[in-house]
Computed example of a mutant assay.
Amino acid sequence: MRCRAGLSVLYGTAGILHLAYPAPFVSITPIWVPNAQAVIILTGFCEIAGAIGLQVPALRRYAGIGLALYAVLVFPANIKHAVDSLSAPGASAWQWLYHAARLPLQPVFVWLAAFAVGFVCWPLHGKAKGQ
């Protein structure tokens, strides 16, 4: 329950930020993504829909799987953000620390979304505790 609630807050907030302030997200979108502005707006709606879906029992499993896939699909933007930030002149220690922590966390976000809806229970056995 807490896992789903936390993910709902995280993705709901991120979705609102994508819609209200798309420019920073457009700037980290890889160049091969067509119509980055529209994609960022779409991802904002997807995050909000996933956040709401996690709270609706009939939609919960679909939302969790969708958010897990979403976390996989946005990883290239996370990589581009890290490369751009860290290759810029004067990259600070804080930027290095942020990206060193952020990039390895992406698989955790994939797992958390799947775990929160009982799609996976590994490394726990039996019923997923995140529900």
Rank of each mutant, 00 (worst) to 15 (best):
M1R: 14
M1F: 13
R4N: 04
G6A: 06
S8R: 00
S8F: 06
L10A: 12
L10M: 15
Y11W: 13
Y11K: 08
G12S: 11
G12T: 11
T13R: 10
T13D: 04
A14M: 04
G15E: 01
G15D: 08
I16R: 02
I16Q: 01
H18N: 05
H18S: 06
H18M: 08
A20C: 15
A23G: 04
A23E: 14
P24N: 01
P24M: 07
V26G: 07
V26S: 05
S27H: 15
S27L: 09
I28T: 15
P30A: 02
P30K: 08
P30F: 09
P30R: 12
W32E: 13
W32T: 08
W32H: 11
P34F: 07
P34A: 07
N35V: 12
N35A: 13
N35I: 03
N35E: 14
A36K: 13
Q37C: 06
Q37V: 04
Q37T: 14
Q37Y: 11
A38P: 10
V39A: 14
I40C: 01
I41Y: 14
L42E: 09
G44V: 15
E47G: 00
E47F: 08
A49G: 07
A49N: 03
G50S: 11
G50P: 02
G50L: 04
A51E: 03
I52H: 03
G53I: 01
Q55H: 06
Q55V: 01
Q55Y: 10
P57V: 08
A58K: 05
A58Y: 03
A58R: 13
Y62Q: 02
A63R: 00
G64P: 13
G64M: 01
G66D: 00
G66T: 02
L67G: 02
A68T: 13
L69R: 00
A71M: 01
V72S: 08
L73M: 14
V74T: 12
V74C: 03
V74G: 03
V74P: 02
V74Y: 00
P76C: 10
P76K: 07
A77K: 11
I79R: 06
K80N: 14
K80C: 15
H81V: 07
H81T: 05
A82I: 05
V83F: 12
L86Q: 06
L86S: 04
S87E: 12
S87A: 02
P89M: 03
P89I: 00
G90H: 10
A91N: 12
S92R: 14
A93M: 13
A93K: 07
A93S: 10
W94M: 15
W94S: 07
Q95K: 06
W96E: 03
W96I: 13
Y98I: 12
H99F: 12
A100S: 13
A100M: 10
A100N: 12
A101E: 13
L103S: 05
L103W: 09
L103Q: 03
P104K: 15
P104G: 05
V108T: 07
W111A: 07
F115M: 03
G118M: 10
V120C: 10
C121R: 14
C121P: 05
C121D: 15
W122D: 07
W122L: 00
W122F: 09
P123Y: 05
P123R: 06
P123V: 02
P123I: 01
H125A: 09
H125D: 15
A128M: 08
G130Y: 10
Q131Y: 14
